[in-house]
Design a protein around this nucleic acid. Structure first.
Lengths: 346, 346
DNA sequence: ATGAAAGCGCTAACAG
DNA sequence: CTGTTAGCGCTTTCAT
């Protein structure tokens, strides 16, 4: 396919210096005269040289690899927007840090998923791993991963926050805020469709919701809670059930945008007007929330920034930062669009 | 973070054989007695050994890397489902082939995007690259890439099919088929919102559309064509324009699902009933087509399989297959959902 | 069928 | 400031 590629020795010869000097120039090392530095760069350009990353990894003992791990099925495309946003953010930060990203999708129902994640880290020599929910909530996995490489968690629950660096929004407050939004519009009969039980961050949103309800002088137990799994389909199923009840909720709060889209779809099928007869809210503010009709009221989460922050936390660790696990809270905010409004004629 | 990892020499020592033999076992090479083979595998397991991929790459002179390149902006999330589907398919096939995937998103409007792609291949030592549209339609880029590594194209237009292996559906036929579907329902006033001009595969869909119109005895020139760019937003803008005309189309065919979602959203905003007052179709059959309301009639494209086929084409090349570029056509089919129906009371 | 030896291209002490 | 010397862990001739 191509001729022999120039090596560092070719550059050294070409610029009349030693191999080490070239290496120093390439790595922005100290102790090189500016003049020599320029000469080396000139040779690099004229030979069209670029370092062999494999050789560099081997010699330096560090692969530069960071893994981004998702729980998902190959044959579904769950949370596509969510995953894409995180991936894009991580990719961008890796570029900045001069590292490489290895994206992995692990079937979350496979019996040995923990092992799969750890094997990935081991066999690929990853130096860091970004775990997304619900992996980021599993103390065993996080501990085991920590023993192998630097770890950063996306939206970890309190149960894992002490174990590794993490980034996320204040989920409890997020839940509180949407609920307040709805209560402020006059809703008194709310329902919540949760995410998977193992995603604790979604559970925290429910806590916030309950706090909001209580702050309004209502009974938190009056909020109906259905156990979903973040999918469009679970939004469909649970909404059908809710709307079949004797006194259906006037507002359905969903654990994410996908679920809300499913809820919306049921409302359409039943010719219910949203938001007049039913308000629906999502969570994440993925592009989906602007694609559906009516546009979704949701809680914005800066997913790209979160992933970027996770990667840079890993980079800091690898650079030698030694203090205890740090959790970085990024700002969320309620985005009120047209899927929520005052409860109307039922 | 961890203790010294076992090397191939540790395994060799442990199993009492030479280093070369271990290497042979690891790589399924010939000339090893079954008995010895078993012994080596036993040592591998007991030492929890795994090869160092960096060292292997360096020694073998091959990185095992395959790049998957998308045109997109960091700050948008265009075609998220489309990209995710391809990525998942490629990832799966890479796993099978024992290779690694490097996903890259190149801002398609950056001035030197061609160079960026080529630099990626060069600096990362990629052995293969999968180009998605519109990169797969650029003869210069494809030629330059071919000089550096194995290349596979997703949905290449005829202009690049002779230059490298490719996979795709028959776009012309796809366009023909949706158009026939609509014509069969009774529509006589069609409009087409295209993708970016540079995506030739979307242009081919238009050719098919025209053929269908002609086959119905109508004038192909009567089909209004607006230049979109595959985004939701372009669906919105063009649909607004179309519906503002004196005799608006009864059906809008969109170059992809995102655009169709935009069209749908305008229809909702105008309180037009879909499909009674306006039929809308998409292309790709991404999850989006089931998320919007009403569910979208669209043309299914087996994106995951396409990406998998692309990766395996690359693997075949790298394994030494030498015949000319081959284009693999995968089956498409019209998925009729509820966004299309007979033209009703206007 | 097996092993010894020679690198792959680079970084990292260690001398100067 | 710069060069010399060892490897990093593996694959690959080439002997045996």
């Amino acid at each position: 396919m191509q001729a022999r590629r120039p090596t560092i020795d070719d550059v050294a010869r070409h610029s009349g210096v030693g191999r080490t000097t070239v290496s120093r120039v390439l790595n922005d090392g100290p102790n090189v005269r500016p003049e020599v530095r320029d000469r080396v760069w000139a040779s690099v350009r004229s030979l069209n040289y670029s370092v062999n990353p494999q050789a560099r990894s081997l010699a330096s003992g560090s692969s530069g690899l960071i893994a981004l791990v998702f729980a998902s099925d190959f044959d579904a495309q769950p949370n596509s927007f969510y995953a894409s946003a995180l991936e894009l953010g991580a990719l961008r930060e890796c570029l900045v840090q001069g590292r490489h990203l290895l994206t992995h999708h692990v079937p979350q129902h496979s019996p040995d998923w923990k092992r799969q994640v750890l094997e990935l880290i081991r066999t690929q020599r990853c130096q860091g791993v970004v775990l997304t929910p619900p992996f980021s909530d599993d103390p065993d996995l996080v501990k085991a991963a920590t023993a192998q490489c630097a770890v950063a968690l996306i939206s970890p629950s309190p149960s894992t926050r002490g174990l590794a660096d993490g980034v996320g929004v204040d989920d409890e407050a997020g839940g509180y805020d949407v609920a307040r939004h709805l209560l402020g519009l006059g809703h008194r009969n709310l329902a919540y469709i949760t995410g998977l039980e193992s995603h604790l961050s979604a559970a925290r949103r429910l806590e916030g919701l309950r706090r909001a309800v209580k702050s309004q002088g209502l009974d938190p137990a009056s909020v109906r809670v259905l156990g979903g799994d973040f999918t469009f389909r679970s939004g469909v199923e649970h909404t059908r059930r809710l709307l079949g009840e004797r006194s259906p909720p006037t507002a359905i709060i969903c654990a994410n945008d996908d679920t809300a889209a499913g809820a919306l779809s049921v409302a359409h099928g039943l010719h219910l007007s949203v938001p007049d007869e039913l308000s629906i809210t999502g969570f994440d503010d993925t592009p989906m929330s602007e694609i559906v009709w009516p546009p979704l009221t949701t809680v914005h989460q800066p997913l790209k920034d979160m992933a970027g922050a996770a990667v840079s936390a890993i980079a800091r660790r690898l650079a030698g930062e030694e203090d205890g696990p740090r959790f970085e809270t990024l700002p969320h905010r309620v985005i009120a669009r047209e899927s929520s409004g005052p409860p109307g004629a039922p």
